[in-house]
Design a protein around this nucleic acid. Structure first.
Lengths: 232, 232
DNA sequence: AAGTGGTCTAGACCACGTC
DNA sequence: ACGTGGTCTAGACCACTTA
């Protein structure tokens, strides 16, 4: 049976989503095969495949060869957030970004952080400490170590005008990384953030790796009131 | 010029990624068109399209009709995290999940939260308060309101054995939602989490919507030491 | 006006995993 | 063994956007 309007993989996607949400395809049920759906909806199998693949990536369907496609019982949805330049993040929040370098030196990297990044004890690093501002107010404190093995150019880079965050985004052959958010007291960053040392703040520890070497480890301590917003 | 091994869209994906990382295709540069790449790599244009589309979705390439494909100058990568049943989240951390209902009643929903969910003042709700445990220790405190307009079945559901979290995952026609993480003091949840009221903790405010109606609003207050881990 | 990516098609072969 | 999804192909038309 052919249908009137549904052409395009998005139409197939929406129709399948509708059937899932209306429980026409209840949780756990096996849905028709790609061939059958293509015939029913009047399109090619590749179009159905594209639509169902997106729904599977979204966690709503589970697909296995031979076993067919089933509606997920307890969908594991994925929340996404965009990781961008800090200045861009501030602009997105409708504020004017500012930046101030606090220190750029050779302060040693704490062993625990060296280990988290998988960096040998003898690998040279550069330390950068800075403050990012939103409309002139403290937004986030950045405490970073950069591997000079992966980024030799960081030894002579000038971080007074361009933040290490942006410099690395432009120059590092970034491949993958980990993010670790937690809540803690402001502690040493309190002086820079203009709050009490006991104030609860959000902290992001991030390790970044290139295709061959670890690149950088950074702790971002956000000012009180920061919210991490995501959509799903 | 044809190549030896590269068949399959993943091979094309990896080859393109390599050229980006080695700066053979430097940031900002325009890369060859799909037709040219297909000829060079010895595959069909659709295969190249699939590969480059994934790289564009990852934020490494920017594609525009007629203008062609360019390497992003400051890539906006997307970090992903899986949103699943709380019990599953606890199992993933290698602990035995536990659950205890604290209260299931008709406590009124605070106006601010009603507004965040976009719920009218007269829409009936059900309130559920519970504690999730990991290896017997407090893991997260759940404070939730469910719209009885969207989920009339919630009025009579038994939340003593199955948490509202899991019940909703199984029964709600979930479509989209927002997540909002922040750091605060444990406050009222301290008693349940076994910590001081002044201890910094991570809080997640989540609003969930179905295709037609708001479904639920929940505040999850995580025990001290909780880390939100993501990969990119 | 023309170039580029976006998508669809019909057919084919393959890989995997269940039966 | 065989059914199902995963992917590739060659060709085509279209949509968007820039020149």
């Amino acid at each position: 049976m052919t249908r009137a309007t549904p052409t395009g993989w998005q139409a197939v996607h929406d129709e399948a989503l509708r059937r899932i949400q209306t429980r026409e395809w209840p949780p756990g049920a096996r849905i028709p095969g790609e061939e059958d759906l293509a015939a029913e909806l009047g399109c090619a199998r590749a179009t159905v495949n594209r639509a169902l693949r997106e729904l599977a990536e979204a966690g709503l369907l589970e697909r296995r060869r031979k076993a067919g496609t089933r509606v997920a019982e307890t969908p594991n949805r994925r929340a996404q957030m965009s990781i961008s330049r800090i200045a861009e993040e501030i602009e997105t929040r409708g504020a004017r970004p500012g930046y101030a370098l606090i220190a750029a030196d050779d302060a040693p990297m704490p062993p625990a952080r060296r280990h988290a990044l998988g960096l040998g004890a003898d690998t040279p690093t550069r330390h950068v400490e800075a403050l990012h501002l939103a409309d002139g107010a403290p937004y986030v404190h950045e405490d970073r170590w950069i591997s000079l093995l992966a980024m030799p150019g960081a030894a002579n880079a000038d971080f007074t005008v361009m933040s290490a965050n942006e410099w690395l985004l432009r120059h590092a052959p970034f491949s993958h990384g980990t993010l670790d958010y937690s809540a803690t007291t402001a502690g040493d960053a309190a002086a820079h953030l203009g709050c009490d040392t006991q104030t609860p703040v959000m902290v992001l520890d991030r390790a970044t790796f290139g295709p061959d070497h670890p690149i950088t480890w950074v702790r971002l301590t956000y000012a009180p009131g920061f919210h991490l917003h995501m959509k799903i």
